[in-house]
Design a protein around this nucleic acid. Structure first.
Length: 310
DNA sequence: ATCGGTACCTGCACGC
DNA sequence: TGCGTGCAGGTACCGA
């Protein structure tokens, strides 16, 4: 589910609630149900290999949360161990498609799909003492790593941090179709299906265009399109289509600003043509066939015969 | 290097 | 109403 803007929103909502707090305990509600529950936890806590889910609980118990930040689509909790004050670790959480991480005022699971609950210390009058992790489809992952771990380094640059010169150089070195490339976390970290489509629409570039073939002008538009889309989406609190909420349980509203994503058959907001859907890299891809032509750069719509947006 | 297909999961909308 | 089907924002792995 969550892409860069959603994870960023979750991180911002959690920061004031968890920073400086200690993890007193962790509960694994789905592991107690039956034998299958333990298998569920094993999958969520796959890396590094734990002998049993409870070993993860022992490892994390007592750690202090120094801060929480975003790395691509991952949430990263920087931790200081209880024993050996110098020992720093990272709790890496990827929410997959349907993962939720919310602060609740109760330790009771709120859904049959709640898999982990972290109890945080702190004054009782402050809300949000329990961090609930819920994941219906269970594509999410929790990893506990040394702070020096290489695990995060395999991802590409953050689209909000990269410079245009770096971005242009990356594009030139790749021949893949842009849509595939934008979904590749080793190329850029943080984009998913929604924001890849929305960025390409804003850049007026066809999703099947080849990276290395882009003109400098197109590369510039893509760079700006990605960053503008992400900034607007963060400002709107992300896109809530099915499951996503921030750390306080609030929905985002960028889904109302989508221009192509899941708008198949509806008129393009720019030219009125019907939005089309095609498959690229076996992912549904939405685009305007008129504004995002394959090949040569598209003319400005101002020069096109006036077509009313309905 | 790149791509398609498959796998991992549950829930939902849809047509019959 | 119930059932089967296809689809959904994630990544990883395989083989070509």
């Amino acid at each position: 589910m969550p892409e860069l803007p959603e994870v960023e929103t979750i991180v911002r909502s959690l920061q004031p609630l968890v920073t400086g707090r200690r993890i007193v305990d962790a509960e694994l509600p789905s592991s107690t149900a039956d034998g299958a529950g333990s298998a569920i936890l094993r999958r969520i806590l796959r890396e590094p290999a734990w002998r049993a889910p409870n070993d993860f609980v022992s490892a994390i118990r007592g750690a202090s949360i120094l801060g929480v930040r975003r790395h691509g689509k991952h949430l990263v909790f920087d931790l200081r161990s209880s024993n050996g004050a110098k020992y720093r670790r990272c709790l890496l959480i990827h929410l997959g498609m349907t993962g939720r991480l919310t602060c609740e005022e109760t330790p009771e699971p709120r859904s049959p799909h709640t898999h982990l609950i972290l109890s945080l210390d702190g004054s009782l009058d402050k809300s949000g003492r329990w961090l609930h992790y819920t994941d219906i489809r269970r594509f999410g992952r929790w990893q506990l790593l040394d702070a020096s771990s290489e695990a995060l380094r395999s991802l590409g640059p953050d689209p909000l941090e990269i410079t245009f010169a770096e971005f242009a150089a990356l594009l030139r070195s790749r021949r893949a179709m842009l849509k595939s490339l934008l979904l590749d976390q080793r190329f850029l970290r943080g984009l998913g299906n929604i924001y890849a489509d929305e960025s390409l629409f804003r850049a007026r570039i066809h999703p099947a265009a080849l990276a290395a073939r882009l003109t400098r002008e197109q590369a510039k538009r893509l760079y700006r399109g990605i960053r503008e889309t992400l900034r607007l989406a963060i400002a709107a609190g992300g896109s809530s289509i099915a499951n996503y909420v921030d750390g306080l349980g609030n929905s985002g509203y960028f889904q109302h600003e989508h221009r192509v994503y899941r708008r198949t058959g509806q008129p393009c907001v720019r030219c009125g043509s019907r939005i089309r859907k095609m498959l690229i890299a076996s992912r549904s891809t939405h685009f305007c066939p008129r504004c995002q032509r394959a090949g040569r750069p598209v003319r400005k719509t101002a020069s096109a015969p006036g077509r009313k947006v309905t």
